[in-house]
Amino acid sequence: MNASIKSFDAISVTVLPAVARLNLRIAPANLEVASAAFGLPLPGKIGQRVAANGRAAWCLSPDEWLLHGPEAEQTAIVADFATARVKAPRSLTVISDREFTIAITGPRAQELLSVACPLDLSGMVPGTAKRTLFDSAQVVLIR
């Protein structure tokens, strides 16, 4: 913001390296097909996460999941879902370049977010995600 945030010992702000990001939309009834394609049991409840083997998925809405994976696996993930498409209709969109991820760490990280995030983050469980606003920008917060 105005003062250089980096000057605080209590917080560090860094842009994380690129990952493969995909937006998955599928009817909850067909979630198993998607889980099989991605290789992780996708969570059914908004905010929840699963993660293993460098891949992670967060449920953002009743029929929407944010998928992360190593950049090198992006093409393979897209291909696996393409194969699965015949089993269950879905939408898988690469959004690796649509967003980037900033890590905010340190004892006062939550306080820094409170500058522009209207949510009470004190009760947010580590690992969970929440799509919300930071000032006027829509963000996905992952704790």
């Binding site: 937006n23 939309r25 009817a27 029929d63 209709p89 879905r90 939408s91 969109t93 690469v94 959004i95 690796s96 370049d97 649509r98 967003e99």
Partner: peptide
């Protein structure tokens, strides 16, 4: 309808 919409404005 089985259709999904995704914004890709900033992707490209």
């Amino acid at each position: 309808l089985q259709v999904w919409l995704t914004s890709t404005t900033e992707e490209w």
